[in-house]
Amino acid sequence: MKRRIPIAMIFVIGQLIAFFLDGSISQILSGILFKYPNTMVPYLTVMWLVLAVFFGNAKKLHLGIWAAVIGFVFDMYYTGILGVYVFIFPLVVYLCQVIYQMLPPSFMSGFLVYFLGITVLVTLGFVANAFIGQAQASVSEFLVNTLAPTLALNLVLLAISYFPIEALYRSHRR
């Protein structure tokens, strides 16, 4: 008989792959994603966390702690400025968890919750970067050229990966 791989392990490995894919996609498609004036940033790391909120057991997977850990690594490795995503990732996970519990579990409510999550994530990221002088765009520029394209990209990515990942978690619940 085949031994089942525990879902916690799949979650952690998937988390790491999603984290590295963020950077690789940004690098490979930089000509398209960062073409002036729009910037689209893939947030697969957050998507993986939020999908775990939807389908997995948040308590058993220790999602809050994982969000903080991966946020810390994100700060350290990608941006080099500590203390930004280490707090934003767990906050987004918490918010998604609270809102998702109020809604009936379906694709549309997942879509809506993820929409809110990405909005919070990108907006707080902008505020933090503006605070340290990295981001110099005005608020209207930010809304049109960063938030809207990033939302579009990430929602498309969610729509693509929602059902395969749901199937993955469902096969492990039995």
Binding site: S24, Y78, G80
Partner: peptide, 11 residues
Amino acid sequence: ITRTPSSWASQ
């Protein structure tokens, strides 16, 4: 290796 997935840091 990789690029920072961020709108603000071209890195």
